[in-house]
Each structure stands twice: as structure tokens, then as C-alpha cells.
Design a protein around this nucleic acid. Structure first.
Lengths: 198, 198
DNA sequence: TACATTTTACTTATTAGTAAGTATATTTGT
DNA sequence: ACAAATATACTTACTAATAAGTAAAATGTA
């Protein structure tokens, strides 16, 4: 794989998270990288094409994380914690996430991009649902709604939490993060390190 | 107030909610209205100016709603329900909300727009916090985190709930809506009409 | 007449995208 | 081993379309 291609993908993703899909151009990429806009088109013929590649890369990255956690025998608590850490990092960097960013622009996206975005969110929700489900069965989590609804709630809080934190105050995100844990922690289960690794 | 001006404001807001701030142009407005793009510039010299006006109109609308609820002696439950109804309506119309839409594009907005957006979100959070706070004191709600954190959580769920529902399935929003109520309903308080007016 | 409203007719800047060319490796035939 | 062909990674130099925005003239309307 070309290092230029990788760098374009990385930069474009950052631009989507910082300025939105319709808020950046190939010029933004080329000037930062010190190449010509045609060079970006060489790797990604269309912006749409670039967008699809970014989404596929993200799904792949997610699968790798899931696999990695299985290999390390992470329990459900640790798995959820790892997932949340991605968002904590984004918040530190004043970024939002792909779901929130592209969710706003969805009606301006090509069909291939919409499909890929849908696949990504589906995959995340399904994973989160199964983690919550089996975590509850083991008594690690407690909540009394369907696991998928709990997954939707948690993901919503994270996605918009980043957006709110960017509008109001960066520090507000950690309160939202905290509230998510409060919402699913069993009453007599102060096992793990108190503050959930914050 | 000019009817043309009102119509532009209305249409522009809808465009922001459907295509994002950077996803629409003055042409989108003028062609739909059957006027020329210069006519839009007559009322709103710059796009930024239009954006600020939309935000101010929204804050005003919000204040009117709050005042109206006070005049009608709504209790905290009814107040929260009314607020959530705005989001249920947006979901029915496949729209997201201004917070989610502009939260994505915030780094591309002018300073006046950013300030106005901040004011709007601040106002909503403060209102929501006070409703939750006094509702809890009356025993209408139950939660054991600071009221402002609960407000942030609820608003996050609503904002990103609309985005997720648009990506996945419209019907997913009502699960998120349901989960919000479950999260703050006291155990022995099945007073109001069961499904919280859904 | 005076004023508000709207169109005509632009400008300037930026956008995504392309066609054709160039330099440098890499492969292949002999 | 060496030249010829080919692929890779770009640049140069463009389009065609659309963006926001403006000045001035025309139109309506009180």
C-alpha cells in the first residue's frame, strides 16, 4: 500500500471529523500534503470514492479491535470500556465521530456511501448489543430494557456527547461518559477500579 | 415582517436540518421560492447572517414554548413531554435538530454563529436542568446524578437519536425515546398514561 | 414622489474532475 | 547484460459547474 494513499485517507477522515463532509475539499488535502489536487484524484477518483474508502477502513479497524479484545479475553466490562475510550480520545482531540458527522450530511451522500455508513453503524450496534446482553447475563451490567435499546441509548449519548462537548465545553463529555456507566452499573458492584478507569 | 423573509428563514432551516449548513446554497432557496438568488441576499446579506437569524428565531421559539407551558401550569412531567414531542416530530419528518446539524459544522461557522449556537444550547440545557431538578424534588422523576448531567444525557440521546434513526431506521428513535423515560421514571410511579403519551 | 422589493447581469473564488505529459522505477524479451 | 516496454506516481494545465456576493436598474406600492 502506498504511503501517500494512507496519508490521504488519514487526513480526509480528520477533515470529515473537523469540518464535515461538505466542509472540506481536495485542496484542503493537497495543500497540507504538499501535492497537487490531481494527485489526490489519482488515488481516489471521486470524493465519493474517498468517503467509501474511509468508511471501509473504519469498519476494518473496528473488526481488528473486536478481534484483539477476544484474543486478550477481555470481559464485557473491559470491552465496553475500550469502546468508550475511543470516544474519550476523540473528545480530547476536539473531534466528533463519523456517525455524527456523516449522519448530518446523509441526504447529500451518494448511495454507496450511505450503504457503507449504514453497515458500519449496524455492525457497531450489533456488537454493542451482544456485549451488553452477555454482560448483563453475567451480572456485570444491570438495565431493564432490551439490550439493543440500551445499545442505541449508549451510542446516542456518545455520538451527541462529542457534539455537545464541542459546542459547550470539552469537560462536559466526561459527565456524559460517567452517566452512561451509572446507568448500567449494578447497585452492589463496585468491583472494578471505582471511577471506571477514567 | 415580510412574508418572503419568513419563508426564506423557514426554508433555510429545513435545508440545514436536511442537508447540513455546508450542503445547501442560496440557489436551493431561490429556486424553490421562485425568486432570484439576489432577492435572498436582499433579506440576508450573507449566509452567515441567515444562519444567525435562524438560531435567534429558534431561541425565541423556545422561550415562547417555555412561557406557554408556565401559563398553562404544566408540571415538570408535562414540560419534559412537550420538549420530547419536538424531537418525535422531527423524527417523523426525517429531520435532525439544529444542535446535531450545526455541531458537525461548528469549525466552519463564523464566530457570530458559533456564539448564537452556544447560547441556544446553553439555554436549553439550563431549562432542562431546572425541570429535572424540580421534578425530582417533587418525586416526579428519579435519578441519582446531578440534574445537569442528567440533562446532558437526555439531550445527547435526543440529538444523536435523530441522527441514528436517519441512518438506521426511523422506528429506532421511539426506542431511544422510551429509554429516556425508563431512565428517570420512579419505580412506583405509573401515574400518567402508561406509555408516556406515545 | 419616495421607498421597499426584486430582477438583471455581473464578478470572483472555489469546487470536483480530467486529459495529457513527465520522471522514475520495474519488468520483460533477447 | 542491456535495451525496450510498461507500470507507478505524480504534475501541468485545463474544464464546467456552482458558490457567495454585488451594483444598478426596474418594478411595484403607499
Amino acid at each position: 500500500m502506498s504511503v501517500t494513499r494512507e496519508k490521504i485517507l488519514e487526513l480526509a477522515e480528520e477533515l470529515i471529523l473537523n469540518k464535515g463532509y461538505n466542509g472540506f475539499s481536495y485542496q484542503d488535502i493537497s495543500t497540507v500534503m504538499g501535492i497537487k489536487n490531481a494527485a489526490v484524484h489519482y488515488y481516489f477518483p471521486s470524493k465519493d470514492n474517498l468517503g467509501v474508502s474511509i468508511l471501509k477502513t473504519n469498519v476494518q479497524r473496528f473488526e481488528e479491535m473486536v478481534e484483539n479484545m477476544q484474543n486478550r479475553n477481555f470481559d464485557e466490562w473491559q470491552q465496553l470500556e475500550s469502546f468508550m475510550k475511543i470516544y474519550l480520545k476523540s473528545n480530547r482531540e476536539n473531534k466528533i465521530c463519523l456517525i455524527g458527522s456523516l449522519g448530518t450530511d446523509i441526504n447529500t451522500l451518494s448511495n454507496p456511501m450511505r450503504v457503507e455508513l449504514q453497515k458500519m453503524v449496524d455492525r457497531i450496534i450489533n456488537w454493542l448489543t451482544s456485549v451488553l446482553q452477555s454482560g448483563r447475563e453475567k451480572g456485570l451490567f444491570q438495565f431493564n430494557i432490551p439490550a439493543r435499546d440500551q445499545a442505541l441509548s449508549i451510542l446516542s449519548s456518545l455520538v451527541a456527547g462529542l457534539q455537545l462537548a464541542r459546542i459547550l465545553n470539552k469537560s462536559d463529555f466526561k459527565n456524559i461518559h460517567q452517566s452512561i456507566w451509572e446507568g448500567i452499573t449494578p447497585p452492589e458492584n463496585d468491583n472494578k477500579s471505582e471511577g471506571h478507569g477514567t
